[in-house]
Design a protein around this nucleic acid. Structure first.
Length: 762
DNA sequence: GAGTTTGAAACT
DNA sequence: CAGTTTCAAACTC
């Protein structure tokens, strides 16, 4: 097995890398940091180092075509980097370990405290153990058809193992790849024993280092693809199940027992490929770091190689973008992957934040009902669940031929790639993030489910890049292929439009993927409260929506349906946006954190984190952020003439007025509803009833002609009675009787007409 | 809808 | 850190 060389970390651009997390990494020399993108330069980078897998150029080749122009950020060195690097050095505070679970085709990266857990994981043939420790784990599920092995290549514990090998194999430098660290300071220790002598270990690296895309040119939103793979081969590796070749930067799975050499060409997102992908990418929230993590899974289509990838932006504090690129059609230009693979579910990608306590969810796009949770430690992040809906068995047991096989057994390898995909086409629309109840978005065509994080989990382990609360992996476009996109829950609604656009413009079926809007309690605001107050469109004119003046930007949202001018808060200006985010975070690391949070013990549950500074509004107008948030000012407020406190008569008066107004609105709404119902009921009641069939007949049966005919009949009957000199009572009886006949005739005709209409489906 | 007020954000 | 300016939302008319 090959381990991704830890040196790739050095390749990461500063802005992408979490320097704090990697500062102790031994291999992060400056020499490797610079990756020069060489436009239009094709570089074949054989990633395979696993002995069990015919690595060398023979069987499987991965051609990496780097077309990206080097971003300015990464200009230091031009060293060729052949593989994705996972930083192994440094911070080992947490002794994070990766557990690979073959079940459900999932790979779970967990922090393992005890060595026993590691041993359990190492044991071949033993069902993979998912070790949950401290809620920090990385769960990777490949979605695909069953039987498809997933390779996950992790860096060796040793120094520069992956680099040397890859370097040997790769003649041309592959600067595109960089190490992506996921989560902050989460160390990864080698947990898995790889087949052969090599032990795949993801060492001591923060989870953040999962992948890193090279920095793309400033002008281009297309990021560099970055893949970190670790091959997990257990002794139980079945001979019939050849290990899938591991290629740097890509995750390839091979389902068929007989591995035929395949060539995979990977291209940088910068070029046209990225453009194609761009439409499928979803950018989410402001990123502290522009780095993105992409998980690529191979879809089922045997003939056509389709590769799926999920790009996860690794942000530090708040905003983070995760892009998912999925290629459904074989011919899609996006990415090329080995085709024959069984279902693999990449369920989740952990995204961590600093000290945050929220989780993100990755949702697979496949049809398989398997839903699993991935805990991604991160600051302010929510728990994210991934649901894979692949055709393969959900359990991942070896029982069925089609069922996915455990990775631990060594049947397959799981690869996790972190290519950076340019996000350009997706726009977002949604209100402030507030997550509480998980929501599921299903797309009929794609059979993909989007599950929103339920309630934020309190314990989040540090070490993962922080993503915005409620980050969710949304299904990436692509028919059968499975892809994931990590999207903040708050932006879920924003995805609707983008998805629709993507579906129409790309192979991605118009799934209308997201049906519901994330309704998460934000800042203590109830879901109902938030849902009733959708985000207002901004009206920025001078800030380009790239400053905190803009509510959209401040909330980590893209402008959508806004009235702003010269807006840069969109995917079309991703570079500028990321830069602006970075600037804001530099100025205030908590710039994107909710301003309303929990106060000190004994104080109100909700209070403004900084307090207001009102001078003239008395804190009783919406100018005041406290009042606007419907909270009272606290001791940290520096307001003058504050009237926004519990006993304030002015506040009470306002509250009463507000309550009264709300009551009136509700009453009006109820009255309207009732009136509408009454009108509808009245209309129904006025319709004639067919005696024979019991159904109602339309008014149209009593036409003018019918009335005239009826009247003529009645008059004729009256004349008849008059001519016969019948008494008045008898005349009336005869007329009424005739009226009854006429009425019966009308009803009969109507019933007949109704029957005839039904017979012809009218 | 135009103009004013307000206070946070940005800047110096 | 304080003062000033900029900005966009809130508010008034």
């Amino acid at each position: 097995m090959d381990v991704v060389s830890p040196e790739l970390n050095s390749l990461l651009p500063d802005e992408i890398m979490d320097t704090e997390a990697i500062e102790d990494v031994p291999h992060s020399e400056s020499d490797g940091t610079a990756v020069q993108s060489q436009a239009s330069q094709d570089t074949s980078v054989p990633m395979e180092t696993d002995p069990s897998v015919s690595v060398s150029t023979s069987s499987t080749l991965l051609s990496l075509k780097s077309t990206l122009s080097t971003s300015t950020a990464t200009t230091k060195t031009t060293d060729s980097v052949t593989g994705t690097t996972v930083s192994t050095g440094g911070l080992q505070k947490h002794a994070t370990q990766f557990a690979f679970s073959a079940a459900n085709h999932q790979i779970i990266l967990n922090k393992v405290a005890s060595s026993q857990a590691t041993e359990a994981v190492k044991s071949a043939g033993t069902p993979p153990q998912i070790i949950k420790q401290e809620g920090q784990k990385l769960l990777v599920t490949a979605i695909g058809k069953s039987g498809q092995p997933i390779f996950f290549q992790l860096p060796h514990t040793g120094s520069k193992p992956g680099v040397s090998q890859t370097a040997g194999n790769t003649k041309s430098p592959t600067p595109q790849f960089k190490v992506v660290t996921i989560g902050e300071r989460t160390e990864l220790k080698p947990v898995m024993a790889s087949s052969g002598n090599q032990v795949t270990t993801l060492q001591a690296q923060q989870l953040k280092t999962v992948q890193i895309p090279k920095k793309t040119p400033a002008s281009s939103a297309a990021p560099i693809k970055f893949i970190i793979t670790k091959t997990v081969n257990s002794k139980g590796l079945s001979p019939q199940m050849p290990v899938s070749p591991v290629i740097q930067g890509r995750v390839l799975t091979q389902s068929s027992p007989v591995m035929t050499p395949k060539t995979i060409t990977l291209s940088e997102p910068h070029n046209t490929n990225m453009q194609s992908i761009s439409g499928k990418k979803i950018a989410i929230s402001p990123l502290k770091t522009p780095s993105k993590v992409t998980v690529v899974s191979v879809a089922s289509p045997p003939s056509s190689a389709s590769q799926k990838s999920v790009a996860l932006p690794v942000g530090v504090a708040l905003g983070q973008q995760i892009l998912a690129v999925q290629q459904s059609t074989p011919g899609s230009p996006i990415k090329v992957a080995t085709s024959q693979t069984t279902a693999q579910n990449i369920k989740s990608v952990p995204v961590g934040g600093v000290g945050g306590s929220q989780y993100k969810t990755i949702i697979p796009l496949s049809t398989q009902p398997n839903v699993q949770q991935i805990q991604v430690p991160g600051n302010r992040f929510h728990y994210v669940r991934l649901v894979t809906a692949t055709t393969a068995s959900s359990t991942g047991q070896l029982s069925g031929p089609n069922t996915s096989k455990p990775v631990m057994v060594g049947t397959g390898a799981v690869r996790m790639s972190v290519p950076v995909v340019s996000a350009q086409a997706i726009k977002q629309v949604v209100p402030k993030p507030l997550p509480s109840a998980a929501q599921v978005v299903t797309t009929a065509q794609t059979q993909q489910r989007l599950i929103m994080p339920a309630t934020p989990l309190p314990q989040i382990q540090p070490g993962f890049t922080s993503l915005p609360p409620g980050t969710v992996l949304a299904p990436a476009p692509g028919g059968s292929s499975v892809g994931y996109t990590v999207v903040p829950a708050q932006y879920v609604t924003q995805l609707q439009q983008p998805f629709a656009t993507l579906a129409s413009s790309s192979s991605f079926p118009a799934s209308g993927a997201i049906q519901t809007q994330a309704k998460l309690p934000l800042n203590g605001v109830s879901a109902a409260e938030t849902t009733s107050r959708p985000r207002k469109p901004c009206n920025c004119t001078k800030s380009q929506c790239l400053k905190l003046y803009c509510d959209c930007f401040a909330n980590g949202e893209f402008c959508n349906n806004c009235n702003c001018n010269n807006c840069f808060n969109n995917l079309e200006h991703e570079t500028e946006r990321l830069k602006a985010i970075k600037t804001c975070l530099d100025r205030n690391p908590e710039a994107f954190k909710p301003k309303i949070g929990k106060g000190k013990e004994g104080e109100s549950d909700r209070r403004h984190s900084k307090g207001c500074n009102c001078k003239r509004s008395g804190c009783l107008k919406n100018y005041c952020e406290c009042y606007e948030a419907k909270i009272m000012c606290s001791s940290i407020c520096k307001c003058i003439g504050c009237k926004n406190f519990e006993e304030s008569p002015e506040r009470k008066t306002l509250m009463h007025l507000a309550d009264a107004a709300e009551v009136r609105v509700q009453q009006q709404t109820a009255a309207k509803t009732k009136l509408s119902s009454q009108i509808s009921d009245l209309l129904m009641r006025t319709m004639p009833v067919v005696s024979s069939g019991g159904g109602r007949l339309p008014f149209t049966f009593v036409t003018k002609e019918v009335l005239e005919a009826t009247c003529e009949c009645l008059l004729e009957q009256a004349k008849k009675a008059e001519q016969s000199r019948q008494p008045q009572a008898e005349a009336e009886r005869m007329i009424l009787e005739e009226f009854g006949h006429c009425l019966m005739s009308i009803i009969s005709s109507a019933g007949k007409a109704k029957a005839d209409c039904a017979s012809i489906n009218c």
